[in-house]
Design a protein around this nucleic acid. Structure first.
Lengths: 362, 362
DNA sequence: GCCACGGCGGCAACGGGTTGCCATGTATTG
DNA sequence: CAATACATGGCAACCCGTTGCCGCCGTGGC
């Protein structure tokens, strides 16, 4: 080994390379940012010197003049919600493919935190993807005036949006339940403020009309397992044979709550969730649910944002809509016409229920 | 409203504020970065003008001179693994508290991707948290020479590390199984290259010695539900009454696989997982597992990194160790002394097994 | 042989804060 | 009252890559 033993004390700059390659700093700069502008032999020599010295062009000073950092921000409502894993990865990979870096901001379900974080980050990024933003439409529009913004899972006028096909997902769920003989669906609502919650309920109303299925709503509940368990208690008062839950977490809570009180899923009650998170496949019985294309959501939103950053107008007309599909597992079954008459195993339940876990650690 | 109707055309700079407040740019700069260095009345006036003009100091040019961006990178092995949600949030909140921004990098389980992403990001961040890095020790040390680095969930000589108390977690699991009458524990190994996998097995060897429990290892398997299902098949050849799995995912796969072949958990086999992910509480039966303090991991690693960035030496002696605890649910039970003699419900299983979900979507 | 043109490289200004150093004015001290 | 110390603000250089513009030189056209 030569005298490379000690790592370079200071960062290597274009000036160091310039001296070593016997050209001016501007030529070094051009060798990297506009290779066509410099003689190919010179460029090659410069590249070799740079390699030898370990030079890497730094995005910071570059951003000073170009005002492009090649970073984008991805804001998500709650990182503990598994829903976002796919979105993040989709965004990340798309950004990385175009040599953009992703800054992740977890809004912790707080409109205040979200806002503060964005304000601190905005000047450093070239654009922002807002996934399930908790901010007001007007706040979002304000940010959108200063930087390219794409909104995910929500429709905001005058801002480019990407959403999943909620109406179609609800429709498919309703059809599925209808085919199983259910003529009444109860919607277990999530947070009032959630945009998807609103559109899912409205879509169910509409689907109910067309399919001649009666619908009603209970809630709102917190979009968590606990929220679902609470909903289960409320269902006790006014039983249902078919339930569509706002999301998988709540659906799982429903299964738990109902099972604990001796109600069989899907024998007595069919349950459909929303999202197709990993947990939907783990719970017993496996949860029938409307699958959202998380990866595609993150990817599409990011791609759209990148084209806007490159100068495209960013169409603010109708939101881009991504397809969903119904994943049928084992939480839905044909309606039991003799519902109400306890079947043998129902009597066994109380004993089993007693052995079920207490309100759960974690 | 005054004439604020149009948003400012260009970014507001200290120069704009300086003109408006009738001071020099340097004074404006100091009013924000060294308030003690300027008369408090002047500072207040500057602050008000800045507020009125909507000025925000930009980290980019600041970084040019200070070489501090107030950004840190958090590198995780696989964002789809729920284990990282807590870590990310812990890191994020700690960083945010000190007004640092977090750049998330998902290595997608690839040492190559990880490396490339870090190289592109390194010059932009003040430090790096490597959570479950897939890179070689020497690669990590190389990065650690250029920027402050804290490694999470892995011990690397000469680099500050934060790990969980794997030996103690394994020990508690072994004790628990021992108390239930098990005198033999099978370890279902995860990826050979995983640092925690190695230490968990060694810890089990040690605990087995002290507690007079025999241990053996099968695997390695992929650290996923599928991996666990495969392990279940292998267990058929050489049955066990107590199993410690590398992580929750594998433990869940084991439960599934065993249940499907008519083996009762925990009646015939007790299973303990590692991590206490949300899924451990959702699966049936609830999974007994060693809980890791994810949030604390992310938080501790980040806090350590921040003190290093502020100039602290970063103790590279023994890794910082975080406590774990055993969460007992329903996948472990007293050993059935008459194991091998089928009990009534075992005969029922085949029918039930047939109705179980196929190899699972998702 | 003269002019036009294109290729290539350098000069210098720029972007937006930061900071060492100095100048001024005021307060403190002997 | 002179001398010194301190508080405060300005000047100008600096961080490092980018880019408009100009100049030099070689080539080709007429």
């Amino acid at each position: 080994m030569p005298d490379h033993t000690r790592p370079p004390e200071k960062r290597v700059t274009i000036y160091d390379v310039a001296v070593e390659a016997d050209v001016s700093p501007s030529t070094v700069s051009r060798a990297f940012s506009r290779p066509s502008r410099v003689n190919s032999e010179t460029a090659e020599r410069i590249r070799q010197v740079a390699e030898r010295l370990g030079y890497r062009t730094s995005p910071l000073p570059r951003a000073l003049t170009t005002s492009r950092t090649r970073m984008i921000a991805l804001v998500i409502a709650d990182i503990t919600n598994p829903v976002y894993a796919g979105i993040v990865r989709g965004a990340q990979e798309t950004a990385m493919h175009d040599e953009y870096t992703t800054v992740l901001i977890d809004a912790q379900e707080s409109d205040r935190v979200e806002r503060a974080a964005i304000e601190r980050t905005m000047s450093t990024v070239d654009g922002i993807v807002l996934a399930s933003s908790r901010m007001s439409d007007s706040a979002i529009r304000m940010f959108a005036k200063q930087r390219p913004v794409v909104v995910l899972n929500r429709a905001v006028a005058d801002v480019p949006c990407v959403v999943t096909d909620n109406p179609r997902g609800v429709r498919r769920a309703a059809e599925h339940l209808g085919e199983l003989g259910h003529d009444h669906i109860t919607y277990v609502a999530g947070p009032q403020a959630s945009w998807p919650n609103g559109i899912r309920w409205r879509s169910l109303l509409e689907a109910g009309m067309e399919l001649e299925i009666k619908v009603r709503q209970i809630g709102p509940f917190s979009p968590t397992i606990e929220g679902g368990e609470r909903a289960a208690e409320e269902l006790r008062a006014r039983p249902a044979t078919a339930v569509l839950a706002f999301n998988d977490q709540m659906a799982i809570g429903l299964i738990r709550g109902l099972t604990r009180m001796g109600v069989d899923v899907p024998g007595d009650v069919s349950i459909v969730g929303f999202d197709n998170t990993l947990a939907a496949d783990i719970v017993t019985p496996g949860l029938t649910t409307v699958a959202a294309p998380f990866y595609a959501e993150g990817s599409a939103a990011t791609r759209h944002l990148l084209t806007m950053i490159e100068g495209a107008p960013g169409h603010t007309g109708r939101p881009m809509v991504l397809p969903v599909r119904l994943v049928v597992r084992h939480s839905t079954a044909a309606r039991d016409r003799k519902a109400g008459r306890p079947r043998p195993w129902v009597r066994q339940r109380p004993a089993l229920a007693a052995s079920l876990p207490p309100p759960s650690e974690q």
